[in-house]
Amino acid sequence: MSRVALLVLVHGSPRPTANEEMFKVVERVRIRNLYPIVQVGFLECNEPDIAKAIDLCVEQGATEIRAVPYFLHTGTHVAQDLPELLEAGGKRHPQTTFLLGDFLGRSRHLTDILAERTRSTECP
């Protein structure tokens, strides 16, 4: 039976408060119960790192990992570092299917949020 994990790939920050809103968003994903496993992994600064997060997904029984970069831009992290980390995960866990989604910044939902933030000045 397949068991799919949604793995959120996050940059990480030395400031403890920097991840609070991301964790709130991930909690909203979790409570929708669309993915039996929802896991966060950090590129830098915070734990678990992405390699560990991949291992945690597999430990929780993931047969397929769908990774989504929580990034706004196609920087070198999105274009190079994250695919390399997933490939390394695939070598450690050859029985697991690894898929990579678009980075967050590509989503049209963000246009709607930007529009709402912009309009927030009109009706104070």
């Binding site: 959120v8 989504v68 990579l100 989503s107 939902h109």
Partner: peptide, 28 residues
């Protein structure tokens, strides 16, 4: 005006992206 911060639609964006995730041939 404020940064993106928290928004329910960021959860929508994560789920939409995960639903459309693709195998390694497309990662480049």
């Amino acid at each position: 005006v404020p940064a993106l911060g928290f928004d329910e639609r960021l959860a929508d964006a994560l789920i939409t992206s995960a639903n459309g995730a693709r195998p390694s041939e497309a990662w480049g």
